[in-house]
Design a protein around this nucleic acid. Structure first.
Lengths: 233, 233
DNA sequence: CGCGGCGTTGATCTCTGTCAATACTTGTGG
DNA sequence: CCACAAGTATTGACAGAGATCAACGCCGCG
């Protein structure tokens, strides 16, 4: 299936192409193929030679890291507009993690040698890419911060808060994927997630199936990062 | 103090300049200043506009993330040859974390507009930079994996294992910085680190002051990532 | 219809954080 | 040069968060 018109819109507003002039973006895209994936497909496997990276056109894709022993850790769950493994593909080593579709998904595949050639011809592409990677880096740092200094309830609160752009007052939203995956994404067990949802009920956040009703977004945000002992510099 | 000869060697083997021809590297370096820092100095503060990045010539520098409430999380501790905040500086947003010297330190400061100009003139600089950031990304991903799926003992074992290049057999090494900082780096409390060291004693790893004696490196490495319940894909 | 995965709840256990006490080290100032 | 203060390190006792184990209802799907 070729690139759909609305998918072009997705690419236009994709962070990785954000600072790129229309012409350069279109030229690059025109050399790429789209792919359609069924749920549970592997885009690539940790350790494989990174010859491509992907931009998600549609669907949800999880990035997972696998230990030799077989344990799997969810690093991130991405969707429409996000790039996957862009830095690694350009750098050219092995993928540091695997990527697997959670839902049906569509992606644009960008080959490493194509992007490298493009960079050499137009350094602005490199700047766009670095911008994208810097953002990814920030996201990873924030995850580490939350893992190190927030407890389960705070991490869940932060996750829910990140799902809405509403500034204050009441709002409702839907959980973007199932609770097993949410739990893995947040680094807790599904049972613990259930219990946290119960605790959140008393704080004005009601979760029913995949529906979340929030009494006051501002108070939700204030939950994040409030701990008893604040370490010193 | 100008750039010292042995510091030039450091830069030559710095990952961020790794894939760069000598001439390009020297040209870039010649436009930069070095700085000398006393212990506890701030290179930059989280939220500041990122106008420079740094390459460490000497000493240890910690990257910390600060929550509004005042809590501080150690993201990473870097030393000679490492670059700090390179992606952010090029992208041009706000620093996502602060950087602070742990020891006396020397750095090369590379200004954002200089590196951007250099990239436009020589796209290979961009590729070197992306390579560096991809590695940093991998390191962050591995940290997240360890935080999510390893317990304190395994994280400490992994940390010690990362300090040696020895393949197998016995070896000794020194802890690179104090135990409070090691604990923070690993996301545990100093008290817990002490107890883990005691447990490790029975596994052939003896820690005395900053000296670590390892009976068998291979068995140390095998400690990392072995957990009871291995999750399925 | 029955199976398998999801989700919840309960009981228990274990790890690690917290609090407290103490020894050791280091650096500063009298 | 010694005394004292502050930071580092270790150990013990305890508490609490979350993992683990188990059981069960629910739903979608072959």
């Amino acid at each position: 299936m070729p690139l759909q018109p609305h998918e072009l819109d997705v690419l236009q507003s994709a962070p990785i192409f954000g600072s790129l002039p229309d012409q350069a973006r279109q030229k690059l895209i025109s050399t790429c193929e789209t792919e359609t994936w069924t749920p549970g497909s592997r885009l690539f496997r940790q350790g494989d030679a990174a010859k491509s990276f992907f931009v998600i056109l549609e669907g949800w894709i999880k990035v997972v890291r696998e230990l030799p022993a077989g344990m799997v850790t969810v690093i991130d769950v991405l969707s429409r507009g996000n790039a996957v493994a862009e830095a690694t593909a350009v750098a050219g080593g092995a993928y540091p993690a695997s990527a697997e579709t959670v839902t049906r998904a569509r992606t644009l595949r960008i080959r490493a040698n194509v992007i490298r050639t493009t960079i050499r011809a137009n350094p602005n592409v490199a700047l766009a890419l670095i911008d994208s990677v810097a953002n990814q880096n920030r996201a990873l740092i924030e995850d580490i911060e939350r893992l190190k200094s927030c407890r389960a309830l705070e991490r869940v609160a932060g996750f829910i808060a990140s799902l809405t752009t509403t500034g204050e007052g009441a709002t409702t939203l839907r959980l973007p994927f199932d609770k097993v995956l949410i739990a893995a994404r947040l680094g807790i067990q599904p049972e613990s997630l259930s219990r946290v949802f119960v605790q959140l009920r008393e704080l004005g956040i009601h979760v029913e199936k995949d529906r979340v009703a929030i009494r006051d977004v501002a108070s939700l945000r204030s939950l994040v990062g409030l701990r008893a002992g604040a370490a010193k510099a």
